[in-house]
Design a protein around this nucleic acid. Structure first.
Lengths: 345, 345
DNA sequence: GACTCTTGTGTGAACGGTCACATTCAGCGC
DNA sequence: GCGCTGAATGTGACCGTTCACACAAGAGTC
């Protein structure tokens, strides 16, 4: 019975070279793809690599100055659907391209400063993807030193001077469509249970809602601000129903807020969709099974994550392949929205 | 001709040494803590570090053989609540201890082989934490070479020969308690909508359910196997209700399955909890807001993640501090469970 | 045949830390 | 004075890779 002593000592490039009867540099050339190496030599080297089970040492490679294939994802809470789905998309695309993915979670409640970001969250020289759907992510993006290669998933496109390193979904248009859907069902107006904005500006989904109301010539009620969780949606929704008992339709910033809204409606004795229509955002895997099943906007977070990785990849290496575009937002009409308004009063 | 310019040339240990007027080795001693360095020297060095903004180079440190503070988490889908919460716990504890966290996502559908694991998912020498609640994780754990430092969050404790590198929540007891709760409400028996097991054995939650039925002297109906998502729960639940129209109580493997169960019940015209009691597992943030609010078992995945990191930390460095234990599973009774059984017929 | 050019391959010096060991210097007993 | 001790610091090799460059052999040109 032979024991694998190699577990202690991984084979090095020189071990491979010795086995193949070439110099270490020739092995390096084979590993790093197609420099000018004779076909026969290449095959011999590859055989030696296979035989020894050689894997290049990351640290040595990095130290020697080779652009190293790794990246760090900065995100707040990974248990939020959008963040988790985007992370999945990034991870998948990155691993396919041979990148290792590190993750640093931003505390949504603690104030982040540049020192902490530099010292603890981002490694020297490491490229970064920021999931900046919320304020914590947007702030991290702001604080990142200009020399760090970074791309980001953002909530809103920067207005006048679009940053080519940012990607986003057309939340605004999606919200407009969802609002039009509700207005089209006959609701005199649509209320809004909004996500916190990632910036000082109004959230994109809220903007899109306003667009639709303006377009229809309807006065916009004040949006009610929620958080990110069902709980925050529930609390905000109670306030909304109390102060505006005449509400017949609500556009919610995400499906979790919508869930809280549904519960608040039930407790207030408002039947959905007969007396109150509720529309969410994201199309989480749960949405179709809620009571009632949620009308919502399906967003391709996973595709956005892939796209964002592709952008970073091309930033680091302009010859990297392009990315397929991600899917358009799509309104999924289910049970939680229905006819309303004057005819129903 | 082209000059390879580092975007920003980071200061090295020798730059610091020059600034402080000492040797590079003395700087190294200061960085690595408690060797014998004169107080005055130490202060001078630290001032130089601060002044230059020096950060040790990870790659160089690793290459030189220093145990490096990083780990890789292997997990399947991060958008599942348990996985995401555990990941959060691991990340938090790890970052507090100065570890960088990488993540590799296992494809639940593709068969994993040892070669892929070695080549693409785990870096040489890198310690690993496996979130092995499902079969993909359990398989990865099995395939990991014995020399890799690894700890794991597992679904079931290994029976006779407990592996000290594994941590788990007492799912079995939790399931027993949840089942007792239902039996105590007067249900003649309790059905089970089970998660897929992570191993060839029966899932722990299913075992715990069986324990309670056995203890009560009740015949156990065949458990119905679901997947992990609301959709799979819904499909399985339809089958269950069709074949066992007399069902009055169902213990579901997680809250997402329970959500699917609730919908299937509604579609079948079975009122919850009046005609059918449903209990879930996990206490996701959504559970309290479902219609009806879900009776479920709260599990401390985040704490388990922290504990598991602590275990790995002590595996690498026996002097690392111990970890606080994680919270006990706790039954949260809400609206989806209620009196049932003979009296209700 | 001496000269380029091209192609394939080898050589040795980085990279930025840590390690093992060498050195210096003060305090001590005799 | 002498050696001995131990604390504080310095010296140089080494980790595994890539890079820049040198070199060897064959092909094409004059």
């Amino acid at each position: 019975m032979t024991v694998h002593m190699r577990s202690v000592q991984e084979p090095t490039i020189r071990d491979v070279a010795r086995t193949a009867g070439v110099s270490h540099q020739t092995v390096s050339r084979v590993i790093n793809g197609n420099e000018r190496v004779a076909e026969a030599t290449r095959r011999r080297v590859q055989a030696a690599i296979g035989e020894l089970g050689y894997r290049p040492n990351r640290a040595a490679r990095e130290l020697a100055g080779k652009a190293v294939r790794s990246l760090t994802v900065l995100t707040s809470d990974t248990s939020l659907y959008g963040n988790a789905a985007a992370l999945r998309g990034i991870e998948e695309a990155a691993r396919t391209a041979g990148f290792a993915v590190s993750i640093s979670v931003l505390d949504r409640h603690a104030a982040l400063d540049a020192e902490e970001l530099r010292a603890r969250l981002v490694r020297p020289g490491e490229p970064v993807i920021v999931i900046a759907f919320d304020a914590a992510g947007a702030r991290a993006l702001e604080l990142l030193p200009p020399d760090v290669p970074v791309t980001a998933l953002v909530e809103r496109p920067p207005g006048d001077d679009p940053d080519p390193r940012h990607v986003w979904l057309d939340d605004r248009l999606a919200a407009t469509r969802a609002t039009r859907h509700l207005l089209g069902l006959g609701h005199p107006t649509v209320h809004c249970l909004a996500l916190p904005s990632s910036t000082a500006h109004t959230a994109q989904r809220t903007e899109g809602w306003l667009d639709a109301l303006r377009e229809a010539g309807v006065d916009a009620p004040a949006p009610v601000e929620g958080g990110w969780t069902p709980r925050s949606g529930y609390l905000a929704a109670r306030g909304l129903l109390e102060h505006h008992p005449d509400t017949t339709a609500v556009l919610c910033g995400n499906d979790d807020l919508a869930l809280g809204m549904l519960r608040a409606a039930r407790e207030a004795g408002r039947r959905v969709p007969d007396e109150l229509s509720v529309v969410g955002f994201d199309d989480t895997p749960a949405s179709a099974y809620l009571a009632p099943a949620l009308t919502t906007v399906r967003l391709d977070f996973e595709g956005l994550g892939r796209t964002c990785f592709g952008l970073l990849h091309r930033l680091l290496d302009p010859s990297a392949p392009g990315q397929e575009p991600c899917a358009e937002p799509e309104l999924i009409v289910r049970e939680s929205s229905g006819p309303g308004g004057r005819g129903n009063g």
